[in-house]
Write a protein that binds this DNA or RNA. Structure first.
Ligand SMILES: [Zn+2]
Ligand SMILES: [Zn+2]
Length: 351
DNA sequence: TTCCTCGGACGTTCAACTAA
DNA sequence: TAGTTGAACGTCCGAGGAAT
């Protein structure tokens, strides 16, 4: 902790997403989809047994990519319809989750008081903070001093993350971006510019329409397909299937970027899970990114599975701090107060 | 059974770096 | 010079050992 905390107390980095217009459901209903992940699938058009309103037909195979019917409005992010004709509940919460699931993102105070910092416990902005008040140590509840950052530390060359697709990123990679091959020029529709803010609320799994650089699978030339009216008064059919934009985790089902052919396998070889399973595992397929878009190569085991060793980073036990004074509070009353929360503790370093 | 410790995940900040 | 990157540094969750 150091004075730079005070220096920088003005701009608070809020990681909440701006309010966005309701996304349109697969079936056209205007409401927020529930926080994901959940399986992505579609239902066949009426010409193939589906219902005009987009609800699934009897015996519909929910894992298959189907044409969307009625045709969607371009330039919006769409979400899959509810399974089995159920309606999604109206989503009213503030989308704020970690990228690794539905767990709410941890909010840190900008500066914990010395007591809380020492105890590695949650603090708040108030002074005295709630915890210090609770333990009757208000008088020692003060901000710590932030260490000054080292200067003059040289770094290597930076990788550019937001570079245009160079063509060597594999499909499914966070860096992959739709672009044309030498044989198929880029097909990024103008409507894409009307997309809602990117990225969308975490936990939301978008469908993008029209799919950039994708051709629809398996319906070429069918009357009434691909935006071409069939001449029978039937509206044009438009393809609709998952396309992970750059930075999005891979979807459970894929259409090959080159051929547009749907495959139950991810282009990089990983098999696709059945929808129900995908729902519970889609999270694990996602590329975990932190608040700065960093990715986690290998997400840590859940903390309840972590092996805990009692040694410090250098392999030695951390020195114990005397249980006197405020940092270690000393009193049982203070120590034990709230279960699952406050236990006054020794200092221990972060990273 | 409760209390306390502390490993490490997670979040924030900002200097170094880079492209325009 | 503005925007991006990435590491330093801070917060604090929660498992598990120690104490009662
Ligand atoms: Zn505090
Ligand atoms: Zn305090």
């Amino acid at each position: 902790m150091s004075n730079d905390q005070a220096k920088n107390s003005a701009p608070v980095q809020e990681h909440t997403y701006p309010a966005i217009a309701p996304y349109q459901h697969f079936n056209g209903a205007n409401s927020y989809p529930p926080p994901g992940p959940y399986p992505i699938y579609g239902y066949p058009p009426p010409s193939e047994g589906g219902h005009v309103d987009g609800t699934p037909p009897n015996g519909a195979h929910p894992g298959a990519p189907y044409m969307m019917y009625p045709p969607p409005a371009p330039g919006v992010l769409y979400y899959p319809g509810p399974p089995s004709g159920q309606a999604f509940p109206q989503f009213t919460g503030t989308p704020s989750t970690t990228s690794s699931g539905n767990r709410p993102k941890r909010k840190q105070v900008k500066m914990a008081c010395t007591n809380c910092a020492t105890a590695c416990k949650r603090c708040d902005e108030a002074r005295p903070c709630e915890r210090c008040v609770k333990y009757g140590i208000s008088e020692t509840c003060v901000d710590g001093v932030r260490k000054e950052r080292k200067k003059g530390v040289k770094r290597g060359p930076y990788k550019r993350k937001n570079k245009q697709n160079s063509g060597d990123a594999a499909y499914g990679d966070p860096e992959w971006q739709p672009s044309g091959s030498p044989n198929s020029p880029p097909a990024v529709p103008p409507a894409m510019h009307a997309l809602p803010p990117f990225p969308p609320p975490e936990g939301y799994w978008p469908y993008m329409y029209p799919p950039p650089a994708f051709m629809p699978p398996g319906h070429e030339g069918h009357p009434g397909h691909e935006g071409v009216p069939n001449g029978n008064g039937q509206p044009p059919m438009l393809s609709y299937y998952p396309v992970p934009p750059p930075g999005y985790p891979p979807f459970p089902h894929y259409a090959h970027p080159g051929t547009g052919v749907y495959s139950p396998h991810h282009p990089n070889g990983a098999p696709v899970q059945p929808p129900a399973e995908a729902a519970s595992h889609a999270d694990s397929q996602s590329v975990d990114t932190d608040s700065q878009g960093r990715t986690e190569e290998s997400p840590p085991a859940p903390s309840n599975q972590r092996k805990r060793t009692r040694t410090s980073k250098n392999g030695e036990p951390k020195a114990k701090k005397a249980k006197t004074g405020v940092g270690a509070q000393g009193t049982k009353a203070a120590n034990g107060a709230a279960k699952g929360d406050d236990q006054i503790s020794d200092d221990h370093g972060g990273n």
